[in-house]
Design a binder for these strands. Structure first.
Lengths: 246, 246
DNA sequence: CGAATCTTTGAATCCTCTCAAGTCTTGTGG
DNA sequence: CCACAAGACTTGAGAGGATTCAAAGATTCG
């Protein structure tokens, strides 16, 4: 039923240096948006800037939640392993979003999901101690955290709705649109191919069925191969398919 | 496609009186578990105790989130209306859980979903002003709130996983188990029937398909009619169906 | 009692899964 | 640098499930 799991890397991580929150573009949209960054300058130096290659793991389900990750570039998937051994992707974290929010909960908390870079991804890694210090000195910071939880819930619900209704054809189109949304921020008209197994875990389907739908998209020029692992897409056609109610 | 919506009541609500937090059994498991209730005695008097009949609305999507609800008995469904007019149940709130957590977010927040009593339900209604006062005087209370957001996310994910995988037969069985879980707290071996449309909105299917599966359950004595709107159930058989991987 | 709503059932169609057998890619060692 | 093996992707055929549309039974409620 499940294919021999592909090799999830743990080491393909590059240290890019210390975070530069003061000049970070992403920060304007994330959890630190309203924070007085200058005040916490020294503290924020403890934030590390990292690059994860495709299929590299950020953290594992059930391990202690002692740090969280803000995605600056790329996409992180959060997946759970089910009783029968299959995987289900619960949420996709895109730039500005947070993976590992459990870190904000009380001591001894563990990660609910496994986080893996879906494509090449850059993140800021923030230790619990930094968060705790900010929470203790800035009594309003918890509001930003509450907001982030809200965002997560919204984004989970969004995925839920997008993916638990309609034909597989529609669901595949919707997942492509989610990925495209990300590609478009970089002004590309291309998407990095993700594996059919990931598509299956996202749409709650099988690799074969996903493949068939993709093949149809390619035949109809909704997708066109444009490089080794890249595809050009017809966004309008995809939107039409995603909303098609026939 | 969508049936003329059944009549959702707005007025079938009974005022049971003021909350009695000090002696509340539910409170031990909810957001106020760690709160010094005596200290806030006067404040908590502003909490109202209500009973909602089946299909009665607690709040509507997009209206201002100025109060939240703690469920003490029954089940509340949170549903979103999709672009095509169909409804999708995003989450079920059971005793001890909270509906309308958005109230904790900053001013001007609106409810993300519509909340409707799935069966006869009793709740405590808590105005924003009460929450704000507690948050302002008790700097640790936000931790309980964070925990509650976490619970909501977990419960959404749980529903997502349970419902977006497997055959309809399995999914219907799983929804029944969720309802039974609630019935069992009251030591019953019965469940109140919920509409096939609700089942469809929960399983992401159609009323006809749900009905067919229910019919099969009745034939096989997994469910037995035991009253006007009541069914007796064979929990073990349901669990078997829910986990069946054939 | 009768109208409106909700539920059930049937039959045909379409979709998705499964199993099985290819083909294509990628990375490694000779 | 090529060949090969392992993994990933594609394709086909058949079976089984789910949806649709249509129509007939139940229920509910005034």
């Amino acid at each position: 039923m499940t294919r021999t799991p592909k090799h999830i890397k743990c080491l393909d991580v590059t240290l890019l240096g210390h975070a530069d929150c003061l000049n970070c573009v992403i920060r304007k949209n994330d959890i630190f948006a309203d924070l007085d960054v200058k005040k916490y300058d020294k503290l924020l130096k403890r934030i590390i800037d990292l690059r994860y290659e495709t299929d590299t793991m950020l953290f594992v389900e059930n391990s202690p939640a002692v740090e969280l990750f803000i995605v600056r570039k790329g996409i992180v998937k959060l997946e759970e392993t089910l009783d029968d051994g299959s995987r289900r992707i619960i949420r996709l974290v895109k730039p500005g979003g947070v993976a590992g929010l459990e870190t904000f909960l009380d001591n001894g908390q563990r990660f609910d999901q496994t986080a893996i870079a879906l494509i090449e991804t850059e993140v800021c890694r923030i230790p619990y101690s930094v968060l705790k210090e900010i929470l203790d000195t800035d009594h309003d910071f918890y509001k930003a955290v509450l907001n982030e939880w809200h965002n997560q819930l919204e984004s989970s619900n969004e995925l839920f709705v997008q993916i638990s209704m309609g034909s597989l054809r529609q669901r595949v189109a919707r997942v492509l649109l989610i990925l495209i949304d990300e590609a478009n921020r970089n002004g590309q008209l291309e998407i990095n191919k993700i594996s059919t197994d990931d598509f299956a875990a996202l749409t709650g389907s099988t690799r074969e069925s996903v493949s068939r739908n993709m093949a149809e998209f390619k035949r109809n020029k909704v997708l066109t191969k444009s490089g080794p692992k890249k595809f050009r897409f017809d966004e309008l056609a995809l939107r039409e398919i995603a909303n098609d109610s026939d």
